[in-house]
């Protein structure tokens, strides 16, 4: 049964992929990309990787679609026809693909318990998490504690992306008339937007602080938070959203989340541990771990949410009045 579901999902993924390549309308391609992400999210659920599925659904199907649509609104929705026949790229892709498939021949079979990935550190994580960290969700303990350095790196990537967008595009303050109509004139969308805005924020908080016990955590929560505010900006206009969260505040928040993460690391160094060794943060190691994980997840959530919202603000601020 599971193989059947896997096969159907993978076939659908392939069809979507080919459609994206063949599509000339960028708007349709964006929608297909969103479907692609949703299909991969379902595949991750089938593979029991619920945390990854949540991330993929929130980021891939949610926010990246919005950002792509904002980009299309800034540029154009037609792909330029290629100048010459793409034979050389096709040959390169085919050779690379064949090399990759050849590479998978040496890999252990899917689900093989003897695979190196299941023998190296994973058993230690699974075995030690209840005693050392004391939280049920092993994914969070790996992500936030055992592999805290990697997560700091990922956060730095998102931080850099936000800084890059801000440097390249710049934020344009609209002179005087910042009250763009948004979709305010459409009553139904406005009412539904108002109805769901608090629920989305509540769900984001749940995902943020329930990350120790169930699927979720800073990355997912941050994106859901940003989506809530983007919905608000769509329903009530960019001007009102910026009165709620000003752009200057976002810039501070972007840095604050990152600094909170690094600060937890430095604090644990000051208390005599290693960088990001949470054991020393409280009297006993397990509550120290809890405290550290909650703090760094909060840092991740703040930075992710503000980077996403800032990118959206920057894109929208460059749009001519009255669009979207």
């Amino acid at each position: 049964m599971e193989i059947l579901i896997d096969t159907i999902l993978l076939v659908l993924l392939m069809i979507t992929g080919f459609s994206i390549v063949r599509m000339r309308s960028l708007l349709a391609a964006t929608m297909l990309t969103s479907i692609y992400s949703l299909l991969s999210a379902s595949l991750f659920v089938v593979l029991d990787a619920v945390d990854v599925a949540l991330t993929e659904a929130a980021i891939g199907a949610g926010i990246s679609t919005i950002l792509l649509l904002a980009t299309i609104a800034l540029t154009t929705d037609r792909e330029k026809p290629p100048q010459r026949t793409p034979m050389l790229p096709l040959i390169v892709v085919i050779i690379t693909g064949m090399a990759l498939i050849y590479g998978t021949l040496d890999m252990p079979h899917f689900g093989n318990p003897q695979a190196p990935v299941h023998l190296h550190v994973a058993p230690a994580y699974l075995h030690d998490t209840p005693g050392e960290i004391g939280i049920p969700n092993v994914v969070t303990s790996v992500l936030a504690s055992y592999r805290g350095y990697d997560t700091l790196g990922e956060l730095a990537v998102i931080f850099t992306a936000g800084a890059g967008v801000l440097t390249l595009l710049g934020y344009r303050t609209r002179g005087g008339n910042s009250m763009d109509p948004g979709i305010r004139k459409l009553l139904i969308l406005r009412v539904i937007g108002k109805l769901f805005f608090p629920l989305i924020l509540l769900f984001a908080l749940y995902v943020q602080f329930h990350g120790d016990y169930g699927p979720g955590g800073g990355f997912q929560a941050g994106v859901i938070f940003a989506t809530g505010f983007i919905l608000y900006a769509l329903a009530f206009g960019l001007g009102n959203a910026q009165r709620l969260i000003p752009h200057q505040l976002l810039r501070i928040m972007v840095a604050f989340g990152m600094l909170l993460y690094i600060g937890v690391g430095i604090e644990s160094m000051l208390l005599g541990g290693k960088f990001l060794e949470y054991n020393v943060l409280a009297d006993d190691p397990v509550s120290g771990q809890h405290l550290g994980i909650i703090l760094i997840e909060l840092g991740v959530g703040i930075t992710v949410a503000s980077v996403m919202l800032m990118i959206y603000y920057v894109f929208r601020s460059r749009q001519p009045e009255g669009d979207l």
Binding site: I188, L189, I192, F196
Partner: peptide
């Protein structure tokens, strides 16, 4: 039940 009809309404609009 809220998002489905709203999405269809937005598309039609």
């Amino acid at each position: 039940i809220f998002t489905g009809p709203t999405a269809v309404h937005a598309l039609a609009q």
